[in-house]
Amino acid sequence: MKLTKENIEEYLLLLVDNELDAAEAAEVNAFVMQHEECRSLLELYRATKPDTGEAPYVFPEKESLLRQETPAMLFGTIKPFRMWRQAAAVALLLGTGLVLTLLVARKDGKEISSPSPSAGAITQNKKLQQEEVPKPSTPPPSTALANVYPNRRLPVAAKTAYPDQAAVAPVKRREREEIAPLAAATLPATIAEESPAPIIQAIDRESVPALTAGRKELPGWVPVKEESLDGVNDLVSQVQELRDNLAAKAKVLKRASFVIRIGDKDLIALGR
């Protein structure tokens, strides 16, 4: 920056306007100190600047410019009444859901545990028929079940319908041993005398009350409802009927026979 008397006025204006950095300002001030006419010119330019110490201007309507500040809320700018409305809606939904849950639970409970005696018996009979008919070889209840699971609280009907496989295995084996002569020999006398006997012995009407009576002395015993006993009795009667049907079929089997004959010779003759 080269200062001369020709360009000093521009730098004086820049100095008055505070547009020079510190080094440039110092250089200009040094030049001004060396030239009297420049000093007076600088004073004139400084006089054109207003005195900042003048009486302050006060805008009289400042309050009209201010805006209402919304208070900070927990959930943003949601108004209180809207929160109450939403809370009421949530409470209504929860209440409705609770009532529906209770109704559904109560309905299920009726079907399972608290039927009317007649309807419950019918329902259980149907279920048992559906389970028992396709499985005629299902072994009958025996006292072995009570010995294997003495603390189980299942209803007697359930234990009767679904006996444990470990307990049933000897019965099945014994049944197979008794029914085996049916396939080996078709003599009716053999089958009629031997095959129904084990089944009749296994299905004993008196065995169920004996089961329940023996368990009453156990620590976890829960009394069995009368309708459950009715169901068990119905099951026993159904099994007995099944036994009769089986015996009738066995009688038919003893008379069944077939012969494979070619010409006058009988190649295979069974049941004759």
């Binding site: 302050p56 201007y57 006060v58 805008f59 400042k62 410019l65 201010l66």
Partner: peptide
């Protein structure tokens, strides 16, 4: 508003 209204008014 508080800081600038006066100077803007001036």
């Amino acid at each position: 508003v508080h800081e600038l209204s006066d100077s803007l008014y001036r």
